[in-house]
Design a protein around this nucleic acid. Structure first.
Lengths: 340, 340
DNA sequence: TTGTAAGCGTTATCAT
DNA sequence: ATGATAACGCTTACAA
């Protein structure tokens, strides 16, 4: 490793002089500066960020704690945050909890040890467990921005959420725009904090067009592909007419597709299925059915802005991102059909 | 921020004693240890990784340089690497080049400044440009593991690649197993280092079953969805019989699907389409058509192992991961049809 | 314009 | 069993 001292020795000046040159300080003899620069380049000198940070009491490091990086939604968040902060000289230290609460706390503790200047946390949905780490975060005044709905134990920290109610309303409005009037809704799991707002959005969209909400078209479901299939089956058993299905989430939509196809229905010729997701779809995840995605990069940008405020010493305020829907459409215009 | 000194003052012992307690050193009076521990916990002390690293000359930090994190393939790599290293106390610093070569070099330089103990680099495909950073990596003896085919300017560093030829052969064998005999092939772009091996794999799979390769079934294509559509159209124009399409990559497959559907063909009832990808598909990226994925986590694990070797002082050796195909199947058994 | 001293938080080493 | 000292690589403050 090349240190300032190494350069200083070869050029025969003091360490301070070299330090000054490296930092472009004024009042350096042009000759000295040239010689130092030449040697530094020759040796491939790169200043030690840790040592500098120790002295300057900064790290230019941010922490990112996610439940899972494999999920494109979180990958998109990570990517966007990295893109926003890299130009300002900040690096991102990744930490995945892999859906494990203890792991989440451990990773947060480690990042605290790295003296991150801020922490983006997408918290796991958990029972209670206000662990010691979360208290420390507050007591030590660590800057935290919560991604998504804020759980109890992160109270006091700003959260950046997406207006899911509005997003779902937009999605349903899209189906209405295609002429669909009888739209079934696969509602999300009760334990999810997102279920309520999304169902509200569904109702609101219909209400704004004076379309009565038929309760028999609303089917409670879980979160997985399997749950989607089960819910779709139940829907079919009700023998009620509908031309489209709006699913609480993407996996539910996939499951519904599977079930409907198995039942001999053609999607989207006879029935359109629309899924709702929190991430932009790409070529990598083109789907057999339509999905509307909320603009997750906007969420990341908002989170970055909140963190900027915190670093600038201002009070971070909660942000609610208004979704812009990104729609990969394979839904068909209405073509009445009776599900039998 | 809580330092050793703070605890030392409150307990009225020397900093060294506290340091020893924190590190579970032997020869500490049980009483002292208890008092120190109590105060430390009370104050929420977390040792400063940078200071410790400065003294110990380590960082327990690894760097990860990717072209894009949004791509599920890279996200999966990042996720797997994080999972492997976190338990050993290593953190991962993320850096995306966002497909920009200068950015790639800049990010590598910054990570060098952080004194990463190793660098995973998924290099951009680039013209020439053996920039200064790559020389420095070698001269300073930085540990580098290349993810994917190794470009010229990273010569000398171990690379972890997937045996793409074998992977494609497995994929084609899968179609053969379904009874398909006339399998068209959308070949990849010439500039891709993956194109050759994959085409070879296609040929090899057919050869091993004594099925003659019909050159008119091989269509050169690009890399995008659009390219896939164009290639599929060209294939249809050739008016040659086939029951399945094997695509060089996933986007090509998506494009082909689009084109075939537009031409009134039903997939997979009349024609099966199989895409080839380098990442496991999940519920998040269910596709309208079959894809075989090589087990990218195996690649990540192999890369982690190579890095372990390097850190242990051994010479890192190139690794070629034998693919295990993960197949999300919606391909149909053969049902002869003439593309017209 | 350049150099010296001190200190950031931690630990290895040698003393007591 | 505990403490004093120096050092890791760097930069601020002051001196020359």
């Amino acid at each position: 490793m090349i240190r300032l001292k190494d350069i200083a020795e070869r050029v025969d000046v003091s360490v301070m002089t070299v330090s000054r040159v490296m930092r472009d300080t004024p009042n350096i003899a042009p000759a000295t500066r040239r010689r130092v620069l030449r040697v530094a380049r020759e040796l491939g000198y790169v200043p030690d960020a840790a040592a500098r940070g120790l002295r300057l009491q900064n790290t230019h490091l941010l922490g990112l704690v996610l439940p899972a990086l494999g999920d494109p939604a979180w990958a998109a968040i990570a990517s966007a945050l990295e893109a926003v902060w890299a130009p300002s000289g900040y690096d991102l230290a990744m930490a995945c909890s892999h859906q494990d609460e203890e792991s989440e706390e451990a990773r947060i503790a480690r990042l605290m040890g790295r003296r991150v200047e801020g922490l983006f946390v997408a918290p796991l949905a958990r029972a209670q467990k206000i662990g010691g780490v979360y208290r420390q975060l507050r007591e030590q005044g660590i800057r935290v921005v919560v991604l998504g709905p804020r759980p109890e134990h992160l109270g006091g920290f700003p959260a950046v959420t997406v207006n899911d109610r509005a997003g779902m309303a937009l999605a349903v409005a899209h189906l209405l725009g295609l002429g669909h009037q009888r739209i079934a809704f696969l509602a999300g799991p009760e334990y999810s904090s997102l279920a309520g707002p999304r169902l509200e959005g569904y109702r609101a969209a219909l209400a704004s067009r004076q379309i009565p909400v038929r309760e028999e078209l609303i089917v409670p479901a879980g979160a997985t592909v399997e749950d989607g299939a089960v819910a779709a089956r139940r829907l079919l058993e009700r023998k009620v007419e509908f031309t489209a299905i709006m699913a609480f989430s993407d996996p539910l939509a996939v499951g519904a597709l599977r079930e409907l196809t198995a039942a001999g229905l053609e999607v989207p010729r006879q029935i359109s299925i629309l899924g709702y997701a929190n991430h932009p779809c790409s070529e990598f995840s083109s789907r057999p059915l339509s999905t509307v995605d909320t603009d997750i990069e906007a969420q990341a940008r908002a989170a970055a802005r909140v963190m900027s405020d915190l670093i600038a010493g201002e009070r971070g305020r909660d942000q609610r991102v208004e979704p812009r829907l990104i729609c990969r459409d394979s839904c068909a215009p209405v073509r009445p059909a009776t599900a039998s």
